[in-house]
C-alpha cells in the first residue's frame, strides 16, 4: 500500500514535470529553421564529396565519357526537366507568401503545383534512365551518372513526401497560419536546396 501511494505521488510529479517541459519550450525562440539550415549545410557536404569524386574521375580520364561508352547524354529532356525544377522553386515561394497572409487555400494550391512539378521531374528522370544505352555498371562514367542523379532524385522524392505531409496537415484548420508555419518554410528551404544541387549537377554532368 505504501509503495502504491508513493508511486502515485511519483507519477504525479513526473506528469507535472513533463507538462512543465512542454510549457518551458515556449520560453525560448524557435530555433528550428536555424537547425534546418545547419542540417542542409551537412547535406551539402555529402554532395560536395560526391561532386569531388566525379570531378576526380573526370579529370583523370583521358577521354570523357570514356571510350566505348554506348550512346551519350541527350540535352533536351534534362534541359526541360531543369527548367521545371527551377520554376518550381518560384512556385513554392508563392506558398510561403500565401501562408504569411494566412491564406491556407493558397498554400495548398501552390504546394500541390510544386509537388506535381517535382513528380514530373522524377518521371522525366526515369524516362531518361529507361532510354539510356549504358547501365549502372558499364563504366565509371555511367556509375557516377546514376549515383549522382539517383542520390539527387532520392532527395526530390523525399521533398515530395514532405510536401504531401504538409498538405495532409494543412487539412486541419489552424494548423498552419501566418503565425506558425515552420513546416512550410522548412520544406521551402529544403526544396531550394534540392534545386541548387540540381543546377550544379546539371552543369557537371551535361554541360561540362
Amino acid at each position: 500500500m505504501q509503495g502504491s501511494i508513493s508511486d502515485t505521488a511519483e507519477s504525479t510529479l513526473n506528469i507535472a514535470q513533463e507538462t512543465g517541459a512542454v510549457d518551458h519550450h515556449a520560453d525560448h525562440p524557435d530555433h528550428r529553421m536555424f537547425g534546418v539550415a545547419v542540417f542542409l549545410g551537412a547535406e551539402t557536404m555529402i554532395f560536395l564529396g560526391l561532386f569531388s569524386a566525379f570531378l576526380t574521375y573526370r579529370l583523370m580520364a583521358p577521354v570523357w565519357p570514356p571510350e566505348g561508352t554506348p550512346g551519350g547524354l541527350e540535352l533536351l529532356l534534362p534541359g526541360i526537366n531543369t527548367l521545371i525544377l527551377i520554376s518550381s522553386s518560384f512556385v513554392i515561394h508563392q506558398a510561403d507568401t500565401a501562408i504569411k497572409k494566412n491564406d491556407v487555400g493558397g498554400l495548398q494550391k501552390w504546394f500541390a503545383i510544386t509537388a506535381a512539378m517535382g513528380a514530373i521531374f522524377l518521371a522525366g528522370q526515369l524516362y531518361e534512365y529507361s532510354h539510356l544505352e549504358f547501365g549502372l555498371t558499364t563504366n565509371v562514367f555511367a556509375s557516377s551518372f546514376y549515383a549522382l542523379t539517383g542520390f539527387h532524385g532520392l532527395h526530390v522524392f523525399v521533398g515530395l513526401l514532405l510536401m504531401l505531409a504538409v498538405l495532409w496537415r494543412s487539412r486541419k484548420p489552424g494548423h498552419y497560419s501566418n503565425e506558425s508555419h515552420f513546416g512550410v518554410e522548412a520544406v521551402e528551404l529544403y526544396w531550394h536546396f534540392v534545386d541548387v544541387v540540381w543546377i550544379v549537377l546539371f552543369f557537371l554532368l551535361y554541360i561540362l
Binding site: V38, A42, E43, M45, F47, G49, L50, L136, T137, S143
Partner: peptide
Amino acid sequence: ILIGTPVLAGALILLAFDLFAGTSF
C-alpha cells in the same frame, strides 16, 4: 562533425555500390 561525417557517408555509399552492385568507383 557537420563538415566531415557526410563526406564519409558519401564514400561509404559508393563503396557499398562497388560491393553489391558491381560498380567500379
